[in-house]
Design a protein around this nucleic acid. Structure first.
Lengths: 323, 323
DNA sequence: TTGTATGCGTTATCAT
DNA sequence: ATGATAACGCATACAA
């Protein structure tokens, strides 16, 4: 930096300001400095800059599962906002275990991010609140008390999906989803409520949040005595697992079994798949989370903001009618 | 850190060594220090640490497309290796434009990563070589002269796929892939060579590396006068685009059209899709890239290492026979 | 609009 | 095995 300053005939401080695009630098000085930097092949050292700045402007983003398109959509949405205010986003990709998740959060914190946004998390509310005492936190996809959150109305989504099945004449509808930790209960509750409203018995099947375990659970259920005529899965990945299991058993969808997923991912849209699903506006969720996080960088304190988007059902061809 | 040292009754230097698990600190001192750190809620500041260390041990990972599962697999493979040698990996997710890619690389470099591995890149060899003069570079999925690289034999993969089609009796086989930049020519060349060997006319269709553009190109080709009986696509995403276009046109796969993809991704394995594809051992690619990158952190210089894995074809149900 | 001085939290060197 | 101290590359308050 000193070399650049010397070459441009100015001080180091001015170089610093010019490079970061601060105001208070004359246009000609700035040009001189930028030229000198380019000629010298100078590269701004972000780590030194952050250390000197005494505060972090970088935004940590934790993403639960890199194989789940929803999180990619959320990331994409958030990135547009971060780029617009040119703040660096430090990505951390989760692994399916709570302890791994703690490690990743720790990594984000030692990387000195200014905020951390969780796109999906297996951490309980208390853990999140604890982290929030250190650094501003925003959660996406889940509303947690006292913490900035954005989500899509899962209860309504569950209601929508279930009623869609009910309207098609189904009476025996099972829900597939993870029970562990009681972390994402709303879709299940929406389902449960809709069933009970219709005077029907809810049937909740506990399965992990991945294709394989959903397939395992479905294989078991579909061979049981009272096989349901429809299954509502917690997300598309699990729904795909159910469909695979059904195919394996020689069951036709939607003739023998109807299936609804959640997330409206690319695979659900394929002609060959045509999975009816619930769209939760993932990229919009990401944008809002980005705005929230960016705001928190500047003004801490104040009351936590909760935003709830509205889901909509996308009907395709995995739901059949039952007389 | 000073507080921790005081509380543990030792010097700052010793705290630094204890926290990083270096040798040369007695077990009892270490225990004392770790306890003090925990009680004080001390968190190691990675940015200060890196600045003081005068060299970076973090590994930059650029991933071309977050929606392409292959890159996720590569990342996963690389991460296992990085974790084993506990080095932090700084992720950078690409956007479909070369200029965006340059920005991302720049971001990695100003973040002071010690190595950068490219999982897919649209940058020309020269640009990569230029970057390699600043920091050790390793490319995955593409072999570039003078730079550590790991890839799977694309030429052989192209050959495998084409011959599979030829053996099923196809004579009119088109290849779908990106021509721009001439960046990934081997699959195409493997195809071309296999066709010519069989005395057939290669038919290369230029399409961008995404589902939509593949679908657009396929819609056009499949309505043309001499419609091919089979299409070999550069990757599964494009193959899916072709299949969607075919479905839209009312063509049956594999009766009216055979399709082969590349990457053997999850979607290709679905019963309803059953896309014949070429597996390129993506996670293994990532592991090797990780090893290469880790090695380069310690010993720079020397000759670049190139590793070429062997692909294999996974036959499913999108290839039909032609008499 | 520009220059100077100070310190950010750590690592590494050297001494003990 | 442990302690003192000089960097690391930059941002920023303050003076000019």
């Amino acid at each position: 930096m000193q070399d650049v300053a010397t070459r441009a005939g100015v001080s180091r401080a001015l170089v610093s300001m010019a490079i970061r695009g601060m105001e208070g630098v004359s246009a000609e000085s700035k040009a001189l400095i930028l030229d000198a930097a380019a000629e010298l092949g100078y590269r701004h050292n972000a780590v030194a800059a952050q250390l000197a700045a005494r505060h972090s402007k970088s935004l940590g983003f934790f993403l639960l599962d890199i194989y789940n398109e929803v999180f990619a959509d959320i990331f994409t949405g958030l990135r547009t906002r971060a780029e617009a205010r040119d703040t660096r986003v430090v990505l951390s990709v989760g692994q399916p275990s709570p302890e791994a998740e703690r490690r990743h959060v720790d990594g984000l914190l030692t990387a000195q991010v200014g905020t951390v946004v969780f796109a999906g998390t297996m951490l309980p509310d208390e853990a999140l609140e604890f982290i929030a005492r250190t650094v501003p936190v925003v959660t996406v996809t889940r509303l947690v008390p006292g913490i900035d959150s954005v989500a899509c109305d899962d209860y309504l989504g569950g209601d929508l999906a279930t009623k869609h099945l009910l309207e098609a004449g189904h009476r025996s509808v099972a829900y597939f989803g993870p029970l562990a930790g009681g972390l994402y209960p709303d879709r299940r509750n929406g389902y449960r409520n809709a069933m009970e409203q219709a005077g029907l018995q809810p049937r909740v099947i506990d399965a992990e949040l991945n294709q394989l375990d959903a397939a395992r659970a479905a294989t078991e259920l579909l061979q049981s005595e009272h096989r349901p005529t429809a299954i509502f899965a917690h997300n598309d990945i699990m729904a795909i697992g159910v469909m695979e299991a059904a195919a394996e058993l020689g069951l036709d969808i939607p003739k023998d079994l109807s299936v609804i997923g959640y997330d409206d991912t690319r695979v659900s849209r394929l002609h060959r798949v045509g999975l009816t699903s619930v769209n939760q506006q993932a990229s919009r969720l990401g944008e809002i989370a980005g705005d929230l996080a960016l705001r928190r960088m500047n003004e801490q304190g104040g009351v936590a903001q909760h935003t709830l988007l509205t889901p909509h059902l996308v009907a395709r061809s995995t739901v059949g009618t039952v007389s």
